[in-house]
Design a protein around this nucleic acid. Sequence first.
DNA 1: TTTCGTAAGTGTGTTGACACTTTTTAGTCG
DNA 2: CGACTAAAAAGTGTCAACACACTTACGAAA
Lengths: 223, 223
Amino acid sequence: MKTKARASAQLRVESSVPHIQAEIERLIANGEIDAGERVKEAVIAQLLGVSRGPVREACRLLERVGLLKSVMNKGFYVRSLSAKEALDLYDLRRNLFGMAGRLAAPRIDDLKIQGLEQVYNAMNEAISENDTVRFYNLNTDFHQQVVEYADNYRLTEIWPTLESELQLFRRQGLYTVASMQNSNREHRVILDALASGNPELAQRATEQHIAEGKVRLLRNING
Amino acid sequence: MKTKARASAQLRVESSVPHIQAEIERLIANGEIDAGERVKEAVIAQLLGVSRGPVREACRLLERVGLLKSVMNKGFYVRSLSAKEALDLYDLRRNLFGMAGRLAAPRIDDLKIQGLEQVYNAMNEAISENDTVRFYNLNTDFHQQVVEYADNYRLTEIWPTLESELQLFRRQGLYTVASMQNSNREHRVILDALASGNPELAQRATEQHIAEGKVRLLRNING
DNA sequence: TTTCGTAAGTGTGTTGACACTTTTTAGTCG
DNA sequence: CGACTAAAAAGTGTCAACACACTTACGAAA
């Protein structure tokens, strides 16, 4: 018998770094680590049962994504987004989502439309139940699907990072029933535009949606 | 006397990771590491006189940027871009550069225009000397400046990563005199459009430039 | 009481070592 | 000579430990 019992054995089929990264993202999204707060490597490491090495690698990744920022000899901090940065993000997302709509429209098929339709209906349910968390997740899904149907690998990679970065700003609970209703009305418009296959129409619809989101954000900022 | 002589002392005022990252990027850009080739951590570490830890962190960063990709138990490889991925990148850059032009036009001032003009003139010099390397650097500069003048922090962050990723595909030496001349004619159009302050005009000019670049790339691919 | 300097404590940045996996090499058999 | 097998080498993934930087707490002097 050659096999040796490994104490806390890692199966060595998958690096721990992505898992750690996802976990830290979750901690931030759930607000368990506040914006501006220091991320202590040892704490994360112990929490996940790994050493600091992989944790640091994950933190570097999150730094590049924009969720953390590193300060020499002080470690990693959860980034906090200024109002301008949040608005910049909206402008950027508007462009990219518009591009996604334009590219997706001629490529989309009935099956995909049906999939989006399901998400749309589910969002209406979430609204009627005032389930903002579910609405947020479905909303993210909807956008991600549209982006994927544009079939541009780099756009598909970048999009989620912008979404999660924006999460730093619009902490949960910002959705009101009215804003969710407006948002989903726009989703309906996007759906129809995509189904029509008209690129310009779809681009207008997708751009408009993010533009309206920016307005909603501004209303939240200014009271 | 309390001060202790540190043997191979790093001053601990700046993390070594960014430096390592830049160095690996340089190695890739200079073609000292070919596309698809494995990046051996120990080699890089010894080359730069550091240990593998920081090297791994730098590699993770470059993975996120898209220059490297990691394979479990095999390490990091220099990514090689498929033709579709390169074209996807052009589509994405076209959108973002168009956005940059639109936003920069109303914000730009005479001083910045003059700066761009200098770069433009220098590029004409480089063309007449058939100095493709200098042209490439100036070209990158020109684009980067336009992007910065758009004053969108995230766009400014993302742009260089897309440029360096594209470098993986269009390895140096792809510039012909004719293509450089065409490219700089388009720069002239961009300059004038920006100087006019008209967002739509500037967006058209900047988008057109990347679109033409895509055509030039396609010509290179197909012979 | 306040302020400054000093010392303990906390935490990062980096390193070297170990376990495991993949690759290469060497050797054997057909 | 070629193919298969086994051992050695190379290289990654992770960890534990060290040295330094920063922070905080404590105490003495003004």
